[in-house]
C-alpha cells in the first residue's frame, strides 16, 4: 500500500474540501438537517403505524351516534362538517368552538403559507394567500391563548389537564409566537432559508441562516413533529376512524359483519 494517496485521489480530495470551504456550511445547518430528517421519519412512520393500527382493529358492532346519515355520501358529509366546521364542538360549547376553530384554521392557513419555502416556483394560490397568512398567525395566537385561559380558569377543565396539556399549548404558542416575531421584529433571510429547505428536499445540505429566532422556531417545529405520533395530536387521524362518526346508520338494511366493518 502506498504511504500517501496517489496524485489522482489527492486532487479529488482537494477539490471536495475546497468546495466545502467555499460553501462554508455551518455545523448548525447539518444538525438541523439531521433533526429534520429524523423528525420527518418519526412523523411519517409513527402516524402511518397508528393509522394502520386503527384500520386493522375491527369495529365489530354498529355504533354511530344517532341520528346519523343512512348512506355513505351522508357519512362523508357528516365527516366534512365535523372536520371543517367542528360541528359537534359547536353544539357543545361556543367559546371552545371559537378558540379551537380560530386556532386550527389559523394553523391550516399558516401551514399553506409556508409552502412557499418548499415550492419553486411558488404555486400561484400559495402566493395569493401570503397576505392572509399573517392574520392566520394572529388567529392561532388568539385561539391558543383563549384555550389556555379556559384550561386554567374553568375548574372542570383544569381538573382534567395533565402537565402535557399545558406544555402542548406552550409549544404551539411558541411556534406561532416565534413565527410572528420573525415576521415583524427579527427578520431572517427568507431567500437563504428557502434555499436550505429546497436543499433538504433534494438531499443537499445548504447553509441555514443562523438567526436565533429562526433556530428557535425550527427547533420547536421539530419537537412538535417528533411528539405528534405519541401524543394527543393523534386526534387528527383519530377523528377519521371514530366509529360513532364514520359509520352509516343502516344496520337493518345491511348486515354489518366484522369482515365489512367500516
Amino acid at each position: 500500500m502506498p504511504a500517501y494517496p496517489s496524485p489522482r485521489v489527492a486532487s479529488k480530495i482537494y477539490v471536495l474540501v475546497s468546495r466545502l470551504k467555499g460553501v462554508a456550511v455551518s455545523v448548525v445547518s447539518y444538525l438541523y438537517a439531521a433533526l429534520f430528517y429524523l423528525a420527518t421519519a418519526i412523523l411519517i412512520v409513527g402516524v402511518g403505524r397508528r393509522i394502520l393500527l386503527y384500520s386493522r382493529t375491527p369495529a365489530p358492532l354498529k355504533i354511530p351516534t344517532t341520528p346519523a346519515p343512512t348512506t355513505t355520501p351522508g357519512v362523508v358529509a357528516r365527516m366534512f362538517r365535523e372536520v371543517v366546521f367542528f360541528e359537534s364542538l359547536f353544539k357543545s360549547n361556543k367559546w371552545t368552538w371559537l378558540f379551537g376553530w380560530a386556532f386550527h384554521f389559523g394553523l391550516l392557513l399558516a401551514l399553506l403559507r409556508h409552502l412557499r419555502y418548499f415550492t419553486d416556483p411558488v404555486w400561484s394560490w400559495v402566493a395569493f394567500i401570503q397576505s392572509a397568512g399573517v392574520y392566520a398567525g394572529y388567529a392561532m395566537v388568539f385561539g391558543l391563548v383563549g384555550l389556555w385561559i379556559r384550561r386554567l380558569a374553568v375548574d372542570r377543565v383544569r381538573y382534567i389537564s395533565a402537565p402535557s396539556d399545558h406544555l402542548m399549548l406552550a409549544l404551539i404558542l411558541g411556534i406561532a409566537g416565534s413565527g410572528l416575531l420573525m415576521k415583524f421584529v427579527w427578520h431572517t433571510d427568507v431567500v437563504a432559508l428557502k434555499t436550505y429547505m429546497l436543499g433538504l428536499m433534494s438531499l443537499q445540505i445548504k447553509q441555514l441562516p443562523s438567526d436565533p429566532m429562526l433556530l428557535i422556531h425550527l427547533a420547536l417545529v421539530i419537537c412538535l413533529m417528533i411528539i405528534f405520533p405519541i401524543s394527543k395530536l393523534l386526534h387528527a387521524p383519530g377523528l377519521f376512524f371514530s366509529p360513532t362518526r364514520n359509520q352509516a346508520d343502516n344496520p337493518r338494511e345491511r348486515r354489518h359483519m366484522p369482515s365489512n366493518a367500516g
Partner: peptide
C-alpha cells in the same frame, strides 16, 4: 383504541 388516543382534553 381510537378513543383512548384521540381525546385532547378540550373539556367540551
Amino acid at each position: 383504541q381510537v378513543f383512548m388516543d384521540a381525546c385532547v382534553k378540550c373539556g367540551a
